[in-house]
Design a protein around this nucleic acid. Structure first.
Length: 171
DNA sequence: GCCAACGTTGGC
DNA sequence: GCCAACGTTGGC
């Protein structure tokens, strides 16, 4: 008798404990997320980043929110995956910067998750501070040439970053 | 504004 | 499938 092997549709990769999401504060800042409480993380147009959102991010996962193209750049707060994945509607919108005519509603190319606000750190944990922290050696964000806007963060690295944020609170 | 690093595109 | 050209990211 033929029986379907009980393998998952996609390999169950080791699930990172957390994620890092880059955003340009002039486009969408931690303050915007605090105001909105939750938002669809739309506009991601990189396949690897999309795959993380589509295949690996789970509701409840913590997310570090990172301001890029900012002065200074750095981690500014904490959020949480609150929904998704689902198609990125901006890909279907001809008026949107993220419009992609190759993405169809029946077969969407671009996916997003929903992210909810948890906290804004009392002070930014700047890229300079992150780089100076030896326990963060190996964090993907700090790798040479790293441009991905959605990145995995290990439990250990998450704890270190949160510790740096708390240290800033005491300072 | 510069430019290194990386992804995508398209000719062949 | 190779690879040059081009576009984007994002720190500095």
């Amino acid at each position: 008798m033929k029986s379907a092997p009980t393998k998952p549709a996609r390999p169950a990769a080791a699930t990172p404990a957390a994620w890092l999401l880059k955003t340009e504060p002039e486009v969408y800042s931690i303050d915007d997320l605090r105001r909105d409480r939750r938002t669809g993380w739309d506009g991601v147009r990189n396949f690897q980043a999309r795959n993380f959102m589509r295949d690996a991010m789970k509701v409840g996962d913590p997310v570090l929110l990172y301001h890029s193209n900012a002065e200074p750049p750095g981690v500014v707060g904490l959020g949480r995956v609150s929904g998704g994945p689902r198609p990125d509607p901006t890909a279907f919108d001809p008026r949107s910067d993220g419009h992609d005519p190759k993405s169809r509603r029946g077969a969407p190319t671009w996916m997003m998750v929903e992210v909810e606000f948890v906290e804004k750190f009392p002070a930014i944990v700047s890229l300079e501070v992150l780089r100076a922290e030896r326990r963060l050696a190996g964090m993907p964000l700090l790798a040479r040439g790293q441009r991905l806007s959605v990145q995995p963060v290990s439990r250990e690295h998450l704890e270190v970053v949160l510790g740096l944020a708390r240290a800033a609170r005491r300072a």
